[in-house]
């Protein structure tokens, strides 16, 4: 599936320009974080990579795989859970895999264990807290053992300690060999967790760089202003 190559992706709903020519290569390893202002098209870009949204122009190539479908999982910003148990929800993504009941159950429980929800397996998913819901959504995706996992603001509504837990899980999923591309508005999180940063603004990828370099020496004016806006205590950058 890798490298995934997006070339000249345009997304212009109702003639409004959201993405104008995005080029992006995703290789086989690591965690890439996409950052950018509200409405920059981060969610749209993830959906395009997941094959859930067709761009109006441009191409996406999964290294020759026409349909890498089952290798990709996505966790939405507001995951929807079925009105049933935590266990049932966690195993939902395995339905199309045609695993034996025993194997599906084993995998589901194992994954729940790893996100720390095994003891809640029989509880109703809809009654979980925000942090627990997010962990369940991660478990549901992780159980599918995807090659590529797309996460849309996985900690948007979580407090620092729940955020910490989710970041730990994301790292573990990466260590398991899954490629991760995620978005966040939490730049501290981006610094902590990512290997590289994609900075999206004005419909394009303005900058793509290893994380430490991006935050120490952003190349573009847009990125400097964005980081200053989000992290105002970093008053200025030396040119």
């Amino acid at each position: 599936m890798f490298p995934i190559q997006l070339s000249n992706i345009r997304f212009t709903p109702d003639g409004r320009t959201v993405l104008t020519g995005v080029d992006l290569d995703i290789d086989a390893e690591g965690i890439t974080v996409i950052i950018g202002p509200n409405g920059a098209g981060k969610t749209v870009l993830l959906r395009i990579m997941a094959g859930l949204q067709t761009p109006h122009d441009g191409a996406i190539n999964w290294n020759g795989d026409d349909n890498p479908a089952t290798g990709i999982a996505m966790v939405f910003q507001h995951p929807v859970l079925l009105r049933s148990s935590v266990f049932h929800n966690a195993g939902l993504g395995l339905k199309p895999f045609g695993l034996s009941r025993a194997e599906a159950k084993r995998r589901t429980l194992q994954t729940l264990e790893r996100v720390g929800l095994a003891h809640r397996a029989e509880d109703s998913a809809r009654l979980l807290s925000g942090g627990e819901r997010q962990r369940l959504a991660l478990a549901r995706a992780w159980a599918m053992r995807p090659q590529l996992l797309l996460l849309d603001e996985p900690t948007a509504a979580l407090d620092p300690s729940a955020t910490d837990v989710v970041e730990g899980i994301v790292r573990e999923i990466r260590t398991d060999g899954t490629r991760i591309v995620m978005t966040t508005h939490n730049l501290g999180q981006a610094m902590r967790i990512s290997d590289d940063i994609v900075f999206l603004a004005n419909g394009r990828v303005i900058e793509r760089a290893p994380t430490s370099r991006f935050f120490a020496r952003p190349q573009s004016n847009e990125a400097k202003l964005f980081i200053q806006g989000e992290l105002p205590w970093r008053i200025s950058f030396d040119n």
């Binding site: 999982a73 939405f76 079925l82 939902l92 339905k95 599918m144």
Partner: peptide, 22 residues
């Protein structure tokens, strides 16, 4: 659920089964 199910690569049969259950 539509987008969520699509992201899990559900066929029509899987979607119908999951929705009836839900």
């Amino acid at each position: 659920y539509a987008t969520e199910f699509r992201s899990m690569h559900f066929s029509l049969r899987h979607s119908v089964a999951a929705l009836l259950y839900d």
